[in-house]
């Protein structure tokens, strides 16, 4: 009797697995084909999947701090490095890991920049646990990520806001008071346990794929302080990872908090992003061997996109 039940259960879940896999293959392809129209946070996942294979040399991961501080088009224009921002608003560390895995399905980047604000996101034990289960499910069964795409049949395809390899132009200015926020201290803020676990997985994945992982803290008076800096520096030293805290280099970079933020110091606007990208471009050039693809016919669309980006900037 028990064997019969076991056989039935196995058969049932096997068929269910096949059905979900078939739906997943279909929705994944659909998402790639209509990447520009995929709404919300899944837009980034669909877009990186839709990039031509092995064309991206630098990936930028993290929450909104990542996709507001690094502009791939600036990097392209400056040094011909093909970068892509895979950051999402409110990205959790589990999502960061699976975003990287997703990108590695089609890309072989040489370096990954991880914006560190994501390491301090802690929605609580149960939400973390839920995300730990949900993210692999979405990764292996994309039907759970893209299940709402059927709605386009009735609602039509709507292109989302223009993005330039994951970066969106935000040129509004909402200044912050620019008070000194990195006041030196020996205290340090704890990095949540889930972040440590997934950082280990990210580091391991990068090592396995021969990718250089760089930790970067984007300038943000609202999100950073010296306690976080100490924790990150200690973590990076322990793991043997390079760590660049741009909050300590705002003067060197030339950040002007009266001009370079669009939401009172929470995020950088495009002018701040240009400064950060220039600094990071120089750092990458000095420390990593990232090829210059300018003039390569395979990257013709990058030139076109840069032209469009510049036009939009000058509007």
């Amino acid at each position: 009797m028990k064997m019969k039940i076991l056989r039935r259960c196995t058969a049932f879940f096997l068929i269910l697995g096949v059905l979900l896999w078939a739906c997943s293959v279909w929705t994944d392809r659909l998402a790639e084909d209509m990447a520009d129209s995929v709404p919300g946070r899944n837009h980034t996942v669909a877009k990186i999947s839709a990039e031509p294979e092995n064309t991206v040399d630098l990936l930028i991961l993290g929450d909104s701090e990542s996709h507001t501080s690094m502009s791939p088009m600036e990097l392209w224009g400056e040094s011909g490095v093909s970068a892509y921002v895979c950051g999402q608003s409110g990205q959790r560390i589990q999502e960061t890991y699976y975003m990287l895995k997703k990108a590695l399905q089609t890309q072989s980047p040489k370096a990954v920049i991880l914006e560190t604000n994501v390491m301090f996101r802690d929605p609580g034990f149960f939400r973390n646990l839920q995300t730990c289960f949900a993210e692999p499910l979405r990764y292996y069964m994309p039907v759970f990520r893209y299940h709402s795409l059927w709605k386009m049949i009735f609602d039509g395809q709507k292109n989302t806001e223009d993005d330039y390899k994951g970066f969106m132009i935000r040129n509004a200015v909402d200044p912050c008071d620019g008070e000194e926020y990195m006041k030196e201290t020996t205290e340090r803020q704890e990095i949540p346990e889930f972040a440590r676990i997934y950082m280990e997985k990210i580091t391991e994945l990068c090592r396995k794929n021969d990718i250089s992982l760089v930790l970067m803290s984007a300038p943000s008076p609202k999100n950073y302080n010296y306690r976080k800096h100490n924790a990150l520096q200690e973590y990076a030293d322990a793991q043997g990872l390079p760590y660049i805290d741009l909050n300590l280099k705002t003067k060197e970079i030339g950040i002007d908090w009266k001009q370079d933020s669009y939401d009172k110091g929470d995020h950088l606007n495009v002018y701040g992003a240009q400064k950060v990208t220039a600094y990071m471009g120089k750092y990458l050039k000095e420390n990593y061997d990232l090829p210059d693809h300018r003039g390569d016919p395979k990257y013709a669309d990058w030139d076109q996109m840069e032209k469009k980006y510049r036009e939009k900037l000058n509007l």
Binding site: L16, L19, L20, C23, P39, G40, R41, N42, V143, F144, R145, H147, S148, W150
Partner: peptide, 13 residues
């Protein structure tokens, strides 16, 4: 099961 997974109002959006 498929109706719930495909057509339910959950996830992004």
């Amino acid at each position: 099961i498929l109706a719930v997974f495909l057509f339910a109002a959950y996830g992004d959006g």
